[in-house]
């Protein structure tokens, strides 16, 4: 299973592609894609958004869905989705909204 991720062009925030081509700042709200075709289509949508100056650095990443919650597979993406482990007061982990 995959989600599409990028950074917002203007402020660099980590975002994921969600329904209706919107980019969300919490991975919990991302849209999960399964199967090669669906992922390729979503990636193309992401790259289009890059052309339109919305985001930058679009790529697909592996996720698992555990008890209905989207969890990144790689540690790198876990850290991207939360913030630096060395600064719990910074990044998304500091914006205390439960998923």
């Amino acid at each position: 299973m995959k989600v599409i991720t990028a950074n917002r062009l203007l402020n660099g925030d980590v975002v994921w592609l969600a329904e209706n081509g919107s980019w969300v700042e919490r991975i919990a709200l991302a849209k999960v894609y399964d199967g090669k075709e669906a992922v390729a289509e979503a990636l193309a949508e992401g790259l289009e958004a890059e052309k339109n100056q919305k985001v930058v650095g679009v790529y697909e990443m592996d996720v698992a869905v555990e008890d209905g919650v989207i969890v990144p597979v790689r540690l790198r993406e876990k850290i991207r989705a939360t913030g630096p482990t060395t600064h719990p007061e910074l990044g998304k982990q500091a914006q205390a909204v439960s998923a």
Partner: peptide, 27 residues
């Protein structure tokens, strides 16, 4: 760049010449 006159491919070497990288969480 923000107006869409430069693509990221065009802009990236320019921002790097001015020390601006894109990292995991932010620039």
């Amino acid at each position: 760049r923000l107006a869409g006159e430069l693509s990221e491919d065009e802009f990236k070497p320019l921002r790097l010449m001015n020390g601006l990288y894109l990292q995991l969480h932010a620039y």
